[in-house]
């Protein structure tokens, strides 16, 4: 590995994971140690039973029907982005370990085709959602309300997704190659396998990882803590 690769696709990955994990734990701890609001802040109507409230919490967080009613296009982008991001995350697990049962059903070629399609769709959907959000923030009230943090996060996401899409569509390397690199990370001896080191794709991977590292490092210090705050906020909405 050259120095840049080592920094972003080697040591940087560890740093990012540590900062992300500890950072999120720290943020949650900060919330937990701050005393709860003494007064009740729920909205009516709310379910009477605990189970009903839990159900409403899940509905408000994962479907947010009220928000959809108010801003359907935005929420469509939000659904699409979050689902595609989840899909992309699951797809990346293939780099840790091949989904053997799927391969036995689809065959090696079939699996690669399936991954190309599913990963491709996820990548394109995320890209479109990010472009929609960037566009939305360039005019009117949205522009006035936006802060540099909003654009920084969208910029990082755009970098991650654009380069991810490049790897998916142009890179021409299959999972097995990346899997060897992932294995080296897990073994705490980060190294690119020869096929990757020799490939021009390596640069795209390094830049993809640079954005991923930065995104993960910044995550706990940004509004992305809504990943947890959405649940706690919606819990308060329905609580007694």
């Amino acid at each position: 590995m050259d120095l840049f690769s080592f920094l972003v696709s080697g040591i940087g990955v560890y740093v990012a994971l540590v900062v992300f994990t500890l950072g999120m734990a720290w943020r949650v701890w900060q919330w937990m140690r701050t005393p709860k609001s003494p007064v009740r802040l729920g909205l009516f109507p709310k379910p009477k039973s605990g189970l009903g409230r839990f159900g409403k919490l899940l509905k408000d967080t994962f479907i947010a029907p009220q928000s959809v009613e108010q801003a359907a296009p935005l929420m469509a982008a939000a659904y699409a982005f979050h689902l595609a991001a989840l899909g992309a995350f699951v797809g990346h697990l293939r780099l840790v370990h091949e989904f053997t049962p799927l391969v036995s059903i689809l065959g090696v070629e079939g699996m690669n085709t399936f991954a190309a399609w599913s990963g491709g769709i996820a990548g394109v959907v995320m890209l479109l959602a990010i472009l929609f959000w960037i566009g939305r923030r360039t005019s009117g009230a949205y522009k006035n309300l936006s802060t540099p943090e909003d654009f920084l996060l969208l910029g990082l996401l755009l970098g991650v997704v654009l380069l991810g899409d490049h790897l998916r569509f142009v890179g021409g390397l299959h999972a097995a190659t990346y899997e060897a690199w992932f294995a080296s990370l897990v073994a705490l001896r980060p190294a690119f396998p020869p096929a990757l080191a020799a490939s021009a794709t390596r640069w795209a991977l390094d830049w993809h990882m640079l954005f991923v590292d930065a995104f993960l490092i910044y995550f706990p210090f940004s509004k992305l803590t809504h990943a947890i705050g959405a649940f706690t906020g919606n819990l308060v909405r329905s609580s007694d």
Partner: peptide, 9 residues
């Protein structure tokens, strides 16, 4: 204060 994403809904 921490989690608002300024979506402006």
């Amino acid at each position: 204060l921490d989690v608002c994403v300024r979506c402006a809904i």
